[in-house]
Amino acid sequence: MDIIISNSVDEPIYEQIVKQIKNLIINGELEEGDALPSIRNLAKELQISVITTKRAYEELERDGFINKVAGKGTFVAPQNQALLKERRLKVVEEKLAEAVNAARIINLSLGELQEMLKILYEEV
């Protein structure tokens, strides 16, 4: 599980963590039931305050992404599958929109774009 934070951006660190963990869950890299590092362990590894990690986890818990189990730790909560699917669809949609825009710039036709998509789909 990779979490990379930056000190120099404006965004508060706890928000960066919240975003990244949300993305990991949406992308499927973190699945239901997976264990998350303890707030103290995370703080130590990232060299930040435990208050920051605590805050991040609290927000994630509030939004239903993770669950704290007393005595055992923190785990990825069972996700609302429909919601999750919808979020994932959105990601695909966003990326396709990017591709479309990029294609338009070099005047690629829809047909050529679809051809590309077919090839890639079969390759990957």
Binding site: P12, I13, Y14, Q47, I48, S49, V50, I51, T52, R55
Partner: peptide, 22 residues
Amino acid sequence: DKIADYITFINQGRIVESTTRD
């Protein structure tokens, strides 16, 4: 900068600030 959770700032014998670093 890397490790404090709370910061208490003292100057001339008085507490100026005592709160979380965040």
